[in-house]
């Protein structure tokens, strides 16, 4: 494992910790899209099926279980916690899951490395992860006030895949020049979707202003 990959994983983990912290400490999930969070549960469930078939490392297994556990608990808080669920911006979080999930599934059926259940679902999870942030970005754009924790959460979540891109470049040159178009292009799309957000996040940070996205 190289330093970029580790930095990516840590950024990803930190983003989730920040989100859980926000929910648990402030008993509020304002500005957080349940649609996006549910899509991440689907992403992790379909990607980590190999937990049962293949052992890679203690680190790998632990992180997979942490990502599964935390993503499920975030959805649980937003749907069922009697205080938290009342802070959910349901009327503004209107993006349809299936608009994203169905095309990704069809694409995974068409374009994959190997036609097996595990491989197609893994590919589906890669495609779905790339676009799963969209409901969250739409919700942010509709929010008048984006609190710091939410802004930092989205920033770190975007930074994680950008670090993975660097990791793939590094791996390409250090490990037999393996070409992996599916995750590479998906990761590139995923990072590009954040470009606009990154721009306004960094601008607000530099000017010491409150983050707000233009409508």
């Amino acid at each position: 494992m190289n330093v970029f990959r580790l930095a990516g994983d840590m950024t990803h983990l930190l983003s989730i910790i920040i989100l859980l912290l926000k929910i648990r400490a402030t008993k509020s999930c304002t500005g957080i899209s349940l649609k996006t969070q549910e899509l991440y549960v689907i992403v992790f469930l379909t990607r980590y099926l190999d937990l049962f078939t293949k052992y890679i490392s203690f680190y790998n297994t632990t992180m997979k279980l942490v990502f599964l556990g935390t993503s499920i608990s975030i959805v649980w808080y937003m749907r069922y916690h009697k205080v938290v669920k009342q802070t959910y911006n349901k009327d503004q979080d209107t993006f349809r899951h299936y608009f994203l999930a169905i095309p990704c599934f069809l694409l995974a059926l068409l374009i994959h490395h190997e036609f097996t259940v595990i491989e197609v679902l893994w590919t589906f999870s890669i495609y779905l992860e790339a676009v799963a942030i969209l409901p969250q970005l739409v919700l942010l754009q509709r929010s008048r006030n984006i609190d710091n924790l939410t802004g930092n959460y989205v920033f770190l979540l975007g930074a994680y895949r950008a670090l993975y891109l660097v990791n793939w470049v590094y791996r390409y040159f250090t490990e037999n020049h393996l070409v992996r178009w599916i995750p590479w292009l998906s990761g590139l799309v995923q990072t590009t979707l954040y470009a606009d957000f990154f721009y306004y996040y960094i601008k607000s940070w530099k000017n010491n202003e409150k983050l707000q996205l233009p409508a």
Binding site: R5, N60, M63, F67, W168, R171, N176, L178, R180
Partner: peptide, 10 residues
């Protein structure tokens, strides 16, 4: 295909 198909990632 080689084993390092990025399946060792998260």
């Amino acid at each position: 295909a080689k084993t390092s198909s990025l399946k060792d990632e998260l």
